[in-house]
Design a protein around this nucleic acid. Structure first.
Length: 426
RNA sequence: GGGUCGGUGCCCGAGCGGCCAAUGGGAUCUGGCUGUAAACCAGACGGCUUUGCCUACGGGGGUUCAAAUCCCUCCCGGCCCA
């Protein structure tokens, strides 16, 4: 399968600077890069598409470069951002880059075994923090006019607003990213930059700089922005939190559940973006959703594929089994080992046997399990019928005691559809 | 530095002396229907020792029986001028 046909099928291409890009990628031997912002110590689902794209590139015989934005992270990309962002400290950024490095290795082959398509991880701090201001203004700034910079869609909305402004610092960001591309082009023969469609403006600044200052040609390719059917941004949990790739921040179980709950309309797109299934498999799954949506075969395949990719096969099958058992009332009939496997990812807390024997008030139980932020909230959940003990709804004024324990010491407390907590009585 | 407009709960935004824990929208949460979806419907949405009390409308101070609302001052932001 040629990369070009594959990417067309999957709808991975939004814009390209020229039509030869996909052709060259299909042949192989191209060095291409994507930048990752070290705004946190872990990447989240927002970066998943770009990670997959780099992986696809490499599989087709090209060399991927993951560029950690240790230098640009100090400035902050204003593209399509509504407000100025707080600056991160150098120490924060360095720590974040370290965390991200680890995650990239799951997607890309950084070993010499990959030969000419061996992946590289670079940090733009190495050149951005050492170039002098005057050099930068002469060598980079001179090639652009403020007129064109102001006209960029990515900053236009900020300039048009009358309640917030755009600092010079953030405004300069696009020049830094352009310079990154130039450096990679000169030092690593990198001729292509990929990104989300919001990066188009920054990418073309780079290709322009390379043409003007080095007289070389370079290209850009953007992927569509991931939107949910209702137009909102993809990749946040129900509570608005990010779904992280770090298992310590988002358990494999949560991630699995997230994809399992994908609405039908989104599933075909996510299968194309985030899995490496062949086209027939994908078309079959599309068909399965139409024929028997309640079975959610496509969602299951998607969830398993993504969790396997990010956390490995073991974690994926564990997450799947946990989900199956969790929503059955038969939880009380599970043997101890199975039960513990299922709730392994859930947060847990320990209660003393004596206090538990006396019976715990429902409100206290929910608060101590951190399933509610306050007693008022806990009361609300109870009154609304949103608290379950061992999958059985807990009445508002009920107490929970030893008779509720499974195997003499476990109680599975659930808040709402899918917020779990394991109580261990000691 | 000068002028001017503004800073309200997660976000947007109304209120402009008491009827304000603060209209409305969004987000979120819980429930219902379903398929552990989507859409839709209903309810909730600062805290507590919960018919009451406490904390909150950028910070501090003041006027008043009473302030998110008036005054002073400081901080922060937008725009214009220098």
């Amino acid at each position: 399968m040629r990369l070009r046909d594959d990417w067309d099928f999957r709808g991975l291409v939004h814009q390209v600077t020229d039509e030869t890009v996909l052709e060259r990628l299909s042949v192989g031997g191209v060095t291409a890069y994507i930048g990752f912002d070290p705004t946190a110590a872990s990447l989240h689902l927002g970066s998943l598409l770009q990670l997959c794209n780099l992986r696809r590139l490499q599989m087709a015989g090209n060399r991927p470069i993951a560029l950690a934005g240790g230098g640009t992270g100090m400035i902050g990309d204003p593209s399509f951002k509504a407000v100025e962002r707080p600056l991160l400290t150098l120490e924060q950024i360095e720590a974040n880059v370290e965390g991200i490095r680890e995650q990239l290795t799951r997607f890309l082959d950084f070993t010499p075994a990959a030969g000419p398509s061996q992946a590289l991880l670079l940090n733009n701090a190495s050149w951005l923090t050492t170039i002098s201001l005057t050099d930068f203004l002469r060598d980079v700034g001179k090639h652009f006019t403020v007129n064109q910079m102001v006209a960029k869609d990515s900053v236009k909305s900020r300039l048009d607003r009358d309640d917030v402004g755009l600092s010079f610092t953030e405004f300069s960001y696009m020049l830094l990213q352009a310079y990154d591309f130039l450096r990679l082009n000169l030092d690593h023969e990198c001729t292509l930059q990929l990104g989300g469609s919001d990066q188009w403006g920054n990418i073309t600044m780079g290709t322009e700089l390379i043409r003007k200052s080095a007289g070389r040609s370079a290209a850009g390719l953007t992927s569509p922005l991931l939107l949910r059917a209702d137009g909102t941004k993809f990749g946040k949990s129900e509570s608005g939190a990010n779904i992280w790739l770090d298992a310590a921040l988002t358990s494999p179980f949560e991630m699995h559940q997230y994809f399992l709950n994908t609405e039908d309309a989104m599933t075909p797109m996510l299968l194309r973006f985030f899995t490496f299934f062949d086209h027939d498999t994908i078309l079959d799954l599309d068909e399965a959703t139409k024929a028997a949506p309640q079975e959610r075969r496509a969602q299951r395949a998607l969830a398993n594929a993504v969790v396997t990719l990010v956390h490995g096969e073991d974690a994926a099958s564990k997450a799947e089994r946990a989900g199956e058992a969790l929503f059955q009332p038969s939880i009380a009939e599970l043997d101890e080992t199975t039960l513990l496997t299922i709730v392994a990812d859930a947060p847990s807390s320990t209660f003393g046997r004596e206090e538990f024997a006396a019976g715990i008030d429902g409100v206290d139980l929910v608060v101590r399990c951190t399933l509610a932020k306050s007693k008022a909230e806990a009361r609300r959940f109870l009154e609304q019928g949103g608290v379950y003990v061992n999958n059985i709804r807990l009445e508002p004024d009920a107490r929970v005691g030893l008779e509720s324990t499974l195997h003499g010491r476990y109680v599975v407390v659930r808040r709402g559809r899918r917020d779990l907590h394991l109580v261990v009585v000691q």
